[in-house]
Design a protein around this nucleic acid. Structure first.
Lengths: 131, 131
DNA sequence: TAAGGCCTTCCAGTGACTGGAAGGCAAGTG
DNA sequence: CACTTGCCTTCCAGTCACTGGAAGGCCTTA
C-alpha cells in the first residue's frame, strides 16, 4: 500500500502520516524506489490514531495508548487512567468555554448592533479592565 | 511606568507585553536608556487585551476590537458582528467537546480498570477504525 | 564599588500539523 | 520512445500565542 491508499483508508492526510513517521509513531519500510510501503498493521495503527485524535487525545497520549494496545499484558487500569485524565481535561475546557459563552451571550444581546457607536461590548471590555 | 508595573496592573506578563509590541498592538515610546515607557493609554489597551483574550478572542479579533474601540465613529454593529462570530465558534467548539465527552464517558465507565488486559476503550479505538 | 534586580535583545521551542517548492518515479497515451 | 500527468520523495517555513532562557546593559541601595 502506498501512502495515498492508507490516507484514503484511514482518513489521515498523507502529510500527517509522514509527520507521524517523523515522530516515530509508525515505521513503514521502504520500497526500492524509496516509497513507503504500508502493511496492514501500519494501517490499523494509523486508523487507531485517527480515532484517538478525534477524541482529542494528545499525540503523547496516543503514543501511550498505542503502546498499551500492543502490550498483551497491559492492565486496563492504565488505559482507563489515561482516558479519565483526558476526560477531566475536556470537562475543564468545556467549563471554561461555557463561562466565555455566557459572558459573550450577555454582551451580544445587550448590544443594539446598529449604526450608533455606543457599544456595551466595548464598554465591558474596557470597564472591567480598570478593576 | 515600566514594563513590570504595567504587567502587575494589567495582569499580562512582561514577555507577552513585549510580544504585543512586536506585533504592533501597543507602541510605547522609549526612555533614553532604552526602557519602554508605558502611558495610561497603553495600560488600558493592554488591560483591554487581557479581557478580550480571556473571552477567547483571537489576537486578530482583538486588534479589530481595539481599532473599533478607538474609533469614535464606529457602528456598534461591527463590534457585535465580531462577538457573534466568536460566540458561534465557541458554541461549535463546545458541541465538539461535548461529543467527545459523551463518548469518553461511555468508554471510561465500560472499562473495568483493573489488572486484566481486556479493555473496551482500546477495543473501541481499534474497532471503529476498521469501518 | 559591588550586589541585586530590573531592563534590553535575540534565539529557540511549544503542538500538531500544513503549505509549498524542487525534483524523482510510474503509468498511460500518441 | 517521448510526453504528460500524477504520485512519490525531501526539506523549509509558517501557523497561533506565547514562553523559556541566555547574554548583557542599567538602576538603586548599601
Amino acid at each position: 500500500m502506498n501512502i495515498s491508499d492508507v490516507a484514503a483508508r484511514s482518513g489521515i492526510p498523507p502529510k500527517t502520516i509522514r509527520y507521524y513517521e517523523d515522530i516515530g509513531l509508525v515505521k513503514p519500510p521502504r520500497d526500492t524506489n524509496g516509497y513507503r510501503v504500508f502493511r496492514e498493521a501500519d494501517m490499523h495503527k494509523l486508523a487507531f490514531m485517527g480515532r484517538a485524535r478525534a477524541l482529542g487525545f494528545t499525540i503523547e497520549n496516543c503514543r501511550n495508548l498505542l503502546a498499551l494496545w500492543e502490550d498483551k499484558n497491559r492492565a486496563s487500569a492504565d488505559v482507563r487512567h489515561i482516558a479519565e485524565d483526558h476526560l477531566a481535561q475536556i470537562e475543564a475546557k468545556i467549563a471554561d468555554l461555557n463561562a466565555m459563552r455566557e459572558t459573550l451571550k450577555t454582551l451580544v444581546t445587550s448590544c443594539s448592533g446598529d449604526d450608533r457607536p455606543d457599544c456595551p461590548i466595548l464598554n465591558d471590555l474596557a470597564k472591567l479592565s480598570k478593576k
